[in-house]
């Protein structure tokens, strides 16, 4: 597994660049990860990110878009706006989580 250096810290990531240890994440790092993929984070982005991280910590897996909507209250359409084209993957990446594994 590669170790990336961001913000002067060593961050463990997988081959694609997703963090493998959510505990190495903080909101400063989220901003850096967002910059890496050409996103600028707003408060609303952070609300989605915080929910995704809390849900992952509780459930042991990254929430799918459907779960973001039904449990988190983030409408799918809005997530497509916040994280264009590939919301589930981009949200997971910026939140320091693995990609969701569910089909739906």
């Amino acid at each position: 597994m590669p170790v990336a250096t961001m913000l002067g810290r060593e961050i463990h990531v997988d081959e694609e660049g997703f963090l493998t240890d959510p505990s190495e994440w903080d909101e400063e790092l989220a901003k850096q990860l967002a910059t890496n993929i050409g996103l600028e984070l707003t408060d609303r982005h952070f609300e989605a990110i915080r929910f995704a991280r809390e849900d992952q910590a509780a459930q042991g897996e990254t929430p799918t878009l459907r779960r973001m909507q039904t449990v988190g209250g983030f409408p799918t359409k809005e997530l497509f706006g916040l994280f264009p084209k590939k919301p589930a993957k981009k949200l997971s990446y910026v939140a320091g989580l693995q990609k969701p594994v569910g089909c739906v």
Binding site: L7, G8, F18, I37
Partner: peptide, 16 residues
């Protein structure tokens, strides 16, 4: 800020 050119970044190529 550390240079990020050695950091693997997922390829989110737009389907467009």
């Amino acid at each position: 800020m550390t240079a990020t050119d050695t950091v693997p970044v997922p390829s989110f190529d737009d389907a467009d």
